[in-house]
């Protein structure tokens, strides 16, 4: 047939490629044998086929919104139009919390209940300031991002969490 001849792989190159693939498959098979034998002989070997599901701990992606840190001594934190949200545990909330702060303990595994989000939305506050344990990661920052991701606007979190907030409250002597 007249026309351009199709580009063919040179036989030597083809042979070399075949040998390379063959070598790779041989190595793969040898590694499978060594791996299986080692696993069978070692004390900490694992079952070749896992029967029960692995218990993995990967936080599920929740909607996350933009939020910014605010200092504990910022007057906006203590403004009457600010809703303070305590992301710490119920026990920590019980021990100390600023007057008027509502408790929504942040759970790293479970999303915040919709009724809690509605509670914030219906509060009529002009600003939401969340504070947590101040750890790394900070539960307050995590909850603030989650709340912001669910459509609540003007959400901030207290940098450092409850400890600087408690100190600032002490200095203010009230609230």
């Amino acid at each position: 047939m007249p026309g351009i001849a199709p580009a063919a792989i040179h036989p030597v190159h083809l042979q070399s490629l075949r040998a390379t693939v063959r070598d790779a498959l041989l190595v793969l098979a040898a590694c499978a044998a060594v791996g299986a034998a080692t696993n069978a002989l070692r004390p900490g070997g694992i079952a070749f086929v896992q029967r029960t599901e692995y218990e993995i701990l990967v936080p599920c992606p929740e909607g996350s919104g933009d939020t910014q840190a605010i200092q504990a001594d910022d007057p906006a934190v203590w403004d009457t139009r600010t809703l303070l949200v305590d992301a710490r545990s119920a026990a920590e909330h019980q021990r100390w919390h600023p007057t008027g702060a509502i408790a929504i303990p942040f759970d790293y595994l479970e999303p915040t209940a919709p009724e809690q989000v509605r509670r914030i939305a219906s509060s009529g506050a002009g600003r939401v300031v969340v504070f947590g344990d101040g750890g790394n990661p900070d539960s307050g920052e995590q909850l603030a991002r989650e709340i912001a991701g669910k459509g609540i606007r003007n959400v901030r979190f207290v940098e450092g969490g409850a400890p600087p907030l408690e100190k600032a409250a002490g200095l203010r002597g009230a609230r």
Partner: peptide, 13 residues
């Protein structure tokens, strides 16, 4: 699940 352990056993080698 049935492929997780075989891969974990063979891949490092």
């Amino acid at each position: 699940l049935y492929l997780v352990n075989p891969l974990a056993i063979v891949l490092p080698w």
